[in-house]
């Protein structure tokens, strides 16, 4: 038995390590150099104390006011914006999904263009879309619905197209062999395969849209965000507290329900 030799330490690429290190250092020097350090406002401590105490003693009276403009109606509005926006995009993105799916078009470039278009829509911030829609249809929930409906096409279209790319062509060939028309093939062979995925992704996007809908009001596109920003501007921290609480509770409940449904479907 030969004497056991110590294993050689793996040689690490020192040059690469230094390059990464220097690049990171330069990045941080650049990033930190641009931040104005004028110090905190002297009132910062006071305001944070007011915010914390406001959030821990929420304004319970605001939950329901008989004359309107209360928490429950705001949350309902937010929920409605998210539902409608999600449905519009789930409906509109189907043609885009088939356009961007590699296995649906004979020419590769066609699907590529579709994919690029969807990623373009995805990158376009929904709040900017909402700002533009406010200029077009006026402030209110409708602008929010349109913004969410259009923006979500980007992500839903991509996820749907991946679902379409994974379908099995067996059933559609079988139907074609029995003499089914194209529409019948689509309805009986393609649709049943992609529907669970479509529904699951739509629910997932609905969760995201609910979060977005709760901030759309900040720029005037309806929902709970509008009373929230008003309460913030008037420094009414106990009202901010109850609204934040309301948003967190609503989002959590919807997440749980939607997660349960998604588990059941897939």
């Amino acid at each position: 038995m030969s004497s056991a030799t110590r294993p050689i330490k793996p040689k690490k690429n020192i040059v690469r390590r230094w390059v990464i290190f220097i690049a990171l250092a330069l990045l941080y020097i650049w990033a930190l150099s641009g931040v104005p350090v004028e110090g905190f406002k002297e009132t910062a401590g006071q305001i944070s104390k007011a915010i914390v105490s406001g959030i821990f003693s929420p304004d319970w009276d605001y939950v329901y006011l008989p004359e309107g403009e209360d928490l429950l109606r705001g949350l309902l509005d937010t929920l409605a914006i998210a539902i409608l926006g999600t449905f519009i995009s789930a409906f509109l993105c189907i043609p885009f999904a088939f356009w961007a799916a590699n296995n649906m078009s004979k020419i590769k470039a066609n699907a590529g263009i579709g994919k690029f278009f969807l990623s373009f829509v995805r990158t376009f911030p929904e709040l900017v879309m909402a700002l533009l829609f406010i200029k077009m249809v006026g402030p209110g929930s409708f602008a929010g619905v349109l913004a969410l409906g259009l923006h979500s096409i980007g992500m839903l279209g991509k996820l749907f197209s991946e679902e379409v790319e994974n379908i099995d062509f067996g059933p559609s060939e079988a139907l074609k062999a029995t003499g089914a028309r194209p529409l019948q093939t689509l309805w009986f062979a393609v649709f049943p395969q992609v529907l669970p995925g479509f529904i699951s992704y739509t629910l997932y996007r609905f969760e995201i849209n609910l979060r977005s809908a709760s901030v759309l009001g900040i720029i005037g596109a309806g929902g709970i965000g509008t009373p929230l920003i008003f309460a913030m501007q008037s420094r009414d921290w106990s009202r901010v507290g109850i609204i934040l609480l309301g948003i967190i509770v609503m989002v959590t409940i919807v997440d749980i329900i939607s997660g349960y449904l998604r588990k059941k479907i897939v």
Binding site: P36, E38, A44, I47, S212, V215, I218, L228, I248, V251
Partner: peptide, 23 residues
Amino acid sequence: LVRTIPELLLAAIFVAIFGLGPL
């Protein structure tokens, strides 16, 4: 809990605390 609060809301709260600007 942290993930349920949209970043724009967090930013609005921090603006109230620290004032306008990138901080």
